[in-house]
Design a protein around this nucleic acid. Structure first.
Lengths: 128, 128
DNA sequence: GAAATCTGGTTTCAATATGCAACCAAACTT
DNA sequence: AAGTTTGGTTGCATATTGAAACCAGATTTC
């Protein structure tokens, strides 16, 4: 049976999850925030299967989270760049990072510290 | 092939997603935040298949996001309650809600406003 | 200028996950 | 005593995933 979808739910969380709630999408977005833009680089750095990557990139593009930019002169090089909508997912990713940092058994190494680009101070914990 | 897992990734986001990054877990957590605690209620309100629900609840319990409380006198009634770890996911859920509210085509109705329990003011947008 | 390589995919196949409905057993209600 | 509620489990059909092979155009290397 087809996986259930929630695009039209009245719940904003459900709608958000129906765009980026699957196993790979947020990781692709995170990788994009790290600066990755090319198909092959996503593939290599995430270790995702190529067909799945193609499918996810396509969906993220149709959902307006990424846009596919034709770079290179004769139409054979493309880049997937975050849109404003995609960049806005940073809060979500950062919330996940803080939660993971706090509650999941980290690997041995502490992981990179996310810093403000201007002040270069580590970002403050998110609060509600 | 088995779905890829990231429990031991050095990336906190990947570790977080390996606990709550699947299609249903965050929705179950959200529902729990709304007050749902019983198997049947989760099932009815989410419309999730019962076997999947059982599997997810079990995993969330082993991961320490929920705990299963034996309520009722002769061990036939249970409740699944959020732990501190689970409650801490509120920031993630709220970030998703704000993103969904802003970027996804809502249903017609505006959806509930999340308010501070003490001040009863709507919560401020999350920022980093 | 031919061969190899890089890029961005698509196809095929096996294994796994999901959804649905039916079934089950212990407790509780009527 | 019979039926209902709760919390599942099982079996089956379909979807999704992952791995690897394949492919074609552009670019680089020899």
């Amino acid at each position: 049976m087809t996986r259930k979808r929630f695009e039209n739910s009245s719940c904003a969380v459900a709608r958000a999850l129906s765009e980026v709630g699957d196993w790979w999408s947020l990781r692709i977005v995170l990788q994009a925030m790290y600066g990755t833009r090319r198909y092959v680089d996503f593939q290599r750095e995430l270790g995702i299967a190529r067909n799945i990557l193609g499918d996810r990139l396509e969906r993220l593009v149709t959902d307006g989270v990424l846009r596919k930019v034709d770079v290179g002169e004769h139409g054979c090089r493309y880049e997937y760049r975050l849109t404003d909508k995609g960049r806005d997912l940073f809060v979500v990713v950062e919330a996940l990072r803080q939660w993971g940092e706090r509650w999941t058994a980290g690997g041995d190494q502490p992981g990179p510290v996310v810093r403000d680009r201007v002040s270069s101070r580590p970002v403050a914990p998110l609060r509600v």
